[in-house]
């Protein structure tokens, strides 16, 4: 009887993705482009907020581009292209999250040195995108007032690995009886000290503050 032998490996399972993401991040940083990964459940309003953000940045003379992930359709890419910025759609055909190589494959032909901001709108999902580093410098977890205040408690992994939280659709707060204090408390429970911004793409409320936050992260 041959005894089994144990090989110690101690390696991250997503090593290949992590290594590629690290190389991409180094390239993004060297090119001076701020890469932001937006993650939320479907219907939080990522695209609506992103469109307003891109328009405002373009008005300020910034050079922006976006890559957007969905299982099917290029609807979001077409909406974001209304800003006038270059936009590419990743159709994952069933895959519930973006991976670093998908993003890399959609950068072809873009001169990163000619961009100030690159936005990656992830597939609408609060679980699966959490483990996948896309080479971003800023991960944003979005939560709409229509979803309920306990989303951060239900999906702590995403909120804990994100750099900033954005509450969207604040124009609907009253209709939804949204308890702002409770939402902030829940975010604090899973990510103490997290910066939280509150926006409405519909009324424009908070969009300037959110864009100013990005400009501050980008630096001169």
């Amino acid at each position: 009887m041959i005894e089994p032998r144990i090989l110690a490996v101690r390696t991250k399972i997503l090593k290949k993705n992590d290594e590629l993401a690290r190389r991409m991040r180094a390239e993004f940083v060297a090119s001076g482009v701020l890469v932001t990964n937006l993650v939320s459940s479907p219907g939080t309003g990522k695209t609506a907020l992103l469109l307003e953000t891109m328009k405002l940045l373009i008005d300020r003379g910034r050079r922006v581009a976006a890559i957007v992930g969905d299982l099917e359709t290029d609807n979001d890419a077409r909406r974001l292209a209304e800003s006038g910025a270059p936009v590419r759609q990743i159709m994952t055909h069933g895959c519930c999250h973006l991976e670093a190589d998908m993003v890399r494959d959609h950068l072809d032909g873009w001169d990163l040195g000619q961009l100030d901001y690159l936005f990656i709108e992830n597939v609408g999902n609060l679980v699966c995108p959490t483990s996948w580093d896309l080479g971003e410098s800023l991960r944003v977890a979005l939560l709409s007032v229509t979803e309920g205040e306990d989303k951060p408690l239900k999906y702590p992994g995403l909120f804990n690995t994100s750099d900033v939280a954005v509450i969207t659709k604040i124009d609907l707060s009253r209709a939804c009886e949204f308890d702002r204090g409770l939402a902030l408390k829940n975010i604090e429970a899973v990510r103490p000290g997290m910066v939280v911004l509150e926006t409405s793409a519909k009324t424009g409320g908070g969009v300037t503050e959110w864009t100013d936050f990005l400009e501050q992260k980008k630096g001169p």
Partner: peptide, 20 residues
């Protein structure tokens, strides 16, 4: 409140048991 997470995000291949 503690934001400094030291463990809990692991997703690692620890070891492989092989038959030679």
């Amino acid at each position: 409140p503690c934001g400094d997470v030291r463990h809990g995000n692991e997703l690692e291949l620890e070891s492989i048991e092989v038959v030679d």
